Computed example of a mutant assay.
Amino acid sequence: MFVIAIFALLTAAVVEGRQNLAAQGITTGFSFLERSTGFDVGFRLIDYGGYSSYARLLLVGLLNTLLMGTLGILAANLVGLIIAILRISGNSILEAIGVVYTELFRNIPMILQVIFWYMLLLQLPPPRQAFQGLGTILSSRGAYVPALNVNTDHAVIAIAVAVAGLLALLVTAVSRGLSRHAAIRRIRWSLALATLVAATVTLWLGRIPETQLISWPELQGLNIRGGMRLQPEFVALLFGMAIYGGAYIAEIIRAGFISVGRGQIEAARSLGLTPLQVFSRVQLPLAIRAVLPSLINLYVWLFKATTLGVVVGFTDFFAVISVSINQAGQTLELIGILMLTFVLINNSLAFVLNRVNKAIALKGSHLRS
Rank of each mutant, 00 (worst) to 15 (best):
F2K: 05
V3H: 03
A5H: 09
L9Y: 09
L10K: 03
L10A: 14
Q19A: 15
L21Y: 07
A22E: 14
I26H: 07
I26P: 00
G29Q: 05
G29V: 07
G29K: 10
S31K: 08
I46K: 00
G49N: 12
Y51D: 09
L59V: 04
V60M: 03
L63V: 11
N64F: 02
T65W: 02
G69P: 06
I73S: 12
L74I: 15
A76V: 10
A84V: 06
A84I: 07
I85F: 13
A96M: 15
V99W: 13
V99S: 14
T102H: 08
L104P: 05
L112N: 02
Q113T: 07
V114K: 02
V114W: 01
F116D: 00
L120H: 02
L121C: 11
Q123P: 00
R128S: 10
F131L: 15
Q132L: 15
S139E: 10
Y144K: 03
L148H: 05
N149Y: 11
V150P: 00
N151Y: 15
H154I: 11
V156G: 05
A158V: 09
I159K: 04
A164L: 15
G165C: 11
G165H: 07
G165Y: 09
L169H: 03
L169P: 04
R176M: 02
S179Q: 03
S179K: 07
R185C: 06
R186W: 11
L196Y: 04
A199N: 09
A199H: 05
V201C: 12
L203P: 06
G206D: 06
I208L: 10
P209E: 08
P209C: 09
L219F: 01
G221Q: 09
E233M: 08
A236D: 06
M241V: 13
I243S: 08
Y248L: 12
I249Q: 05
I253Y: 04
G256W: 06
F257H: 12
G263M: 12
G272Q: 08
Q277D: 12
Q277K: 11
R281G: 09
R289Y: 11
I296D: 02
N297R: 04
L298H: 09
L302K: 02
K304D: 14
T307F: 06
V312P: 00
S324Y: 03
G329R: 05
E333H: 02
I335A: 07
L340N: 02
L340E: 02
T341L: 12
F342G: 13
N346Y: 09
N347F: 15
F351H: 10
N357R: 06
L362T: 06
L362H: 07
H366T: 13
